[in-house]
Nucleic acid binder design. Structure first.
Length: 381
DNA sequence: TACACGTGGCA
DNA sequence: TTGCCAAGTGT
């Protein structure tokens, strides 16, 4: 221990490091108390009513970096639309992305689709029981593999998601950000895991993190582990887990064109298959440059991206939107097609569509706001 | 090993 | 308005 550690001073405390093994009787007590708590306080969640590894897989993917409340309606709609692995494998990627529209992190949908096709090819459309097979599937990492295999097959595989990291960091009063202790936290999750009931144990851990050992204001009075928690003992709940340092997020100003032709159709493009919002459709546009007016920006971007000339008209709407690593202001203008045949220069595909057809394409959230504004302005005449 | 990757909610 | 956080994975 360094003498100038950043945590509030409790001079004589002896933190438990994650690598340090709890004694067997303590481990048994922790398992028993958590499973007891889960029996009475655990959540009733849709994917806990099935042992179908496909359904559990879909739930685990939808839940990555996503709160339960947000994921639930997508879970139902996705399985309604693609009831089996074979259905998902046979579907068009565009339909899969449409089912995922609004949930974000669209690589999850692309990976689900690819993984389903791999399962049909290599495993007869059956989700594997082996960890080494599961973790090779795109979109399935160590935590998701553990979540699926423990929930579907009661396999003794540990997990280490955000909830478990926070719980274990607090249990041991971890003195470094969790990112710096991944290895020992995995070891602790594995050591704690109840081998007789890994399914309920892992689910209980996540419920505890989501409902009791929350990031802010944890309800330690309701926690089955409070008597063993080093963080509670020294009242460091607001300081552990320690914050990671993060860079400030930039802000971009984007000009966007809603381009009409003389048949009353508008122009949309499909983004490249990988990267930000990969495979989704959008209204074309781009970042404003220094000294440029918004009208100049939009005309230039459309010339560069689509090879056509347009007249930039009235502003339709301005949209503020936050992504993970940057924020944007979209300034959207009605535009009129003047000359040139649109070409897919910086995108995958372009299409002229009627307003009523827009619902058939997957759009990112910010573009859905544009579509809504378009409909509203039509109603007003 | 860091960083990219969406969206909603909350202070 | 800005920052942080939530059932992580891929590169």
């Amino acid at each position: 221990m360094s003498s100038d550690r950043p945590l509030a001073a409790e001079p004589n405390r002896k933190p438990i490091t994650p690598g340090e093994i709890f004694s067997d009787p303590v481990l048994m007590q922790l398992r028993r108390s958590l499973l007891g708590w889960y029996g009475s306080r655990g959540r009733d969640l849709p994917w806990r009513h099935t042992r179908d590894p496909y359904k559990i897989w879909v739930s685990e993917i939808a839940l990555q970096q996503t709160q339960v409340k947000t994921a639930i309606p997508y879970y139902h709609r996705f399985l309604d639309r693609f009831p089996t692995i074979a259905d998902l494998a046979a579907a068009d990627l565009q339909d899969v992305l449409k089912a995922w529209q609004g949930l974000g992190y669209y690589a999850r949908a692309r990976n689900l689709h690819r993984a389903a096709q791999a399962l049909v090819c290599d495993f007869g459309g059956v989700f594997p029981r082996e960890f080494d097979s599961a973790i090779r599937l795109p979109g399935i990492g160590r935590t998701t593999a553990g979540g699926i295999l423990s929930a579907a097959f009661n396999a003794p595989v540990p997990i280490l998601d955000g909830n478990v990291k926070r719980i274990l960091a607090r249990l041991t009063a971890l003195e470094v950000p969790v990112k710096q202790a991944e290895k020992s936290l995995w070891a602790l999750s594995d050591r704690l895991l109840d081998r007789r009931n890994p399914r309920d144990f892992n689910q209980a851990l996540m419920d505890l993190g989501a409902t009791v050992c929350t990031p802010k204001n944890p309800t330690c009075l309701l926690c089955p582990w409070s008597d063993r928690c080093q963080t509670r003992q020294y009242n460091l709940q607001s300081q552990i887990p320690m914050r990671e340092t993060s860079a400030p997020i930039p802000h971009k100003t984007i000009g966007v064109a809603v381009i009409w032709n003389d048949r009353g159709e508008l122009l949309i493009d499909r983004r490249p298959p990988e990267g930000l919002l990969g495979g989704l459709w959008e209204f074309p546009g781009g970042k404003i440059e220094p000294g440029e007016s918004m009208e100049e920006c939009i005309a230039r971007e459309i010339r560069e991206e689509l090879g056509i000339e347009i007249a930039v008209g009235d502003r339709l709407i301005e949209i503020e939107h936050a992504y993970t690593h940057f924020r944007v202001t979209l300034t959207v203008h009605h535009c009129r097609h003047l000359s040139g045949e649109p070409q897919a220069i910086e995108c995958d595909e372009i299409r002229w569509v009627d307003v009523d057809e827009l619902d058939n394409f997957p759009f990112p959230k910010a573009n859905v706001k544009i579509i809504e504004a378009l409909r509203d302005s039509n109603f007003r005449g």
